[in-house]
């Protein structure tokens, strides 16, 4: 597995998209810190960019990359290798390459301009989101045979998690505003990796106070050690379940 991973990473290290992604993030992050005098404000804006852009690019890149590599993946499947190992190696390589781009593009400027716990939280949640959405992208690409349909499903997934899910949560909160539904919102937010990451960052920046009672509920739950463990477990499950489903499909699939 590590041999396939090593050479795939070597290929991805020179991949124009991965390099372009790192440069785009680097220019955006540096630009925000240069234009905004208040580093906290710059971090808040950057976290919004990261929460929207990182899942989208990880998802779409993984799908397109999988389809571009399909003929070579078939050739690998003819070698004395287990299919599980091939997919695992490819997942590790793609997610490492994109995480590397993220660390270069966001991590370096953030640690240079605003080092501290918030910077590290942003960095770790960004990497977490990359791992989650690479796994989701891989699952979609393995399960769907048609490239265009797979990209379409990827985009719908992203829109669903970035926009529709939040809209649904807001609708629930407004509709049932006369009832104490905040405890219900916590597990619902944890079901969406982007929302979960947003809450984790928000709590670090200390913006929860602006959200009133909901913020207090978030703070009480996610601010505790148990809440942190639940967040980490939820993100890990978001990564593990799609990857396991992708592996199952790939092993059974006719190539």
């Amino acid at each position: 597995m590590w041999k396939v991973c090593k050479y795939t990473l070597l290929d991805l290290a020179r991949n124009r998209f991965a390099i372009g992604y790192a440069l785009l993030l680097l220019v955006t992050s540096s630009g925000l810190f240069m234009l905004e005098a208040d580093d906290t404000k710059a971090l808040i804006t950057l976290s919004q960019v990261v929460l929207a852009l990182t899942p989208l690019l990880a998802l779409v890149f993984t799908i397109i990359w999988h389809f571009n590599q399909l003929e070579f993946t078939v050739l690998l499947a003819v070698q004395p290798l287990r299919r599980e190992s091939i997919l695992r190696a490819q997942y590790i390589a793609v997610s490492t390459a994109l995480s590397g781009s993220f660390v270069l593009g966001v991590g370096l400027p953030v640690l240079a301009w605003a080092p501290g716990p918030v910077a590290w939280t942003l960095l770790l949640t960004g990497i977490g989101l990359t791992l989650v959405f690479c796994a989701l992208g891989l699952w979609i690409a393995v399960w769907q045979r048609d490239r265009a349909k797979a990209v379409g499903i990827g985009l719908v997934t992203w829109v669903g998690l970035v926009l529709l899910y939040d809209t649904l949560l807001l609708w629930i909160m407004f509709t049932f505003s006369d009832r104490p539904i905040e405890p219900l919102i916590v597990p619902l937010a944890a079901l969406n990796p982007i929302d979960l990451s947003r809450i984790i960052i928000m709590l670090r920046i200390d913006l929860a106070a602006l959200l009133g009672y909901t913020g207090a509920v978030y703070e009480r739950f996610f601010g505790s050690i148990g809440g942190a463990a639940v967040s980490a477990t939820a993100l890990a499950l978001w990564m593990a379940i799609p990857f396991l489903l992708a592996t199952r499909s790939f092993v059974r699939k006719d190539l």
């Binding site: 050479y7 795939t8 070597l10 290929d11 991805l12 290290a13 020179r14 991949n15 571009n68 590599q69 399909l70 003929e71 070579f72 078939v74 050739l75 003819v78 070698q79 004395p80 290798l81």
Partner: peptide
């Protein structure tokens, strides 16, 4: 068993940057 197989597909694609 695939260690003993040599396969040449009709259309070959490899990692482009290697």
């Amino acid at each position: 068993y695939r260690a003993g197989i040599g396969y040449m597909p009709q259309f070959a694609e490899f990692p482009r940057e290697l």
